[in-house]
Design a protein around this nucleic acid. Structure first.
Lengths: 107, 107
DNA sequence: TGCATAGGCAACTGAATAGTTGCATATAGT
DNA sequence: ACTATATGCAACTATTCAGTTGCCTATGCA
């Protein structure tokens, strides 16, 4: 499974709110996930498809409904395999900069 | 500083390789960062501008050269403030799924 | 059988994006 | 001053993308 698809899927704010919603409560239907987003069902459906392609969301068919579940594994993988490298290099990077960069724009 | 800009900046594979290059060695020039990418200098420059706008790259002018440095702080922030939520909910999410999702597509 | 609900597919449109090209500016070295 | 190097800016193009619309399928239920 490609890590690039995960990064791309996470790049959209609406998709992150979908993940948030599924983190709060798993097993939501497409219709349920559309509520209060000011967007058509098809638009939300496309976003969910992107998340599903990135393996961030798993689905289960129950009758005519499609239940959506968060799969946090790819996020974990990014944290472990990608962000970890930058954590490890953080102190040396700061030493490398050793000037005004931190706090320049504040945070 | 917006976390969305960081997510969007990280969504591009070339930009991630630029971050990798700066993590390996700070203070590289634009020209130096262009090597072996099969892309014009302007294209790379635009990508660096995106990274800079997301505060992932800090720059310093030295004469006619522009030196680029990695700033890992936004990545840290995402790890702490965003990914952290999903780490915390991982076990309960797995309990929520309690079926075939992990390992369905393998990894 | 008839109807309502949940979702899927495909075509279309307008906006955003990536990358290029051409030219301009600024510094370094002679 | 002159030339080469390092970068910046702006316009243009081709592609990609988000969201919509219209229609179709499938399930639930009376």
């Amino acid at each position: 499974m490609s890590m690039d698809a995960v990064f791309k899927a996470l790049a959209d704010p609406l998709r992150r709110t979908l993940l948030d919603a599924l983190r709060a409560r798993g097993g939501q239907t497409l219709g349920g996930l559309c509520g209060g987003r000011g967007m058509t069902r098809q638009a939300v459906s496309k976003h969910l498809a992107v998340l599903e392609a990135a393996n961030l969301v798993a689905t289960e068919r129950r009758g005519r409904e499609k239940l959506h579940y968060l799969n946090p594994a790819p996020i974990q993988e990014i944290a472990d395999r990608w962000i970890g490298q930058y954590e490890r290099s953080r102190l040396e990077a700061l030493a490398d900069l050793k000037f005004r960069i931190e706090g320049e724009r504040d945070g």
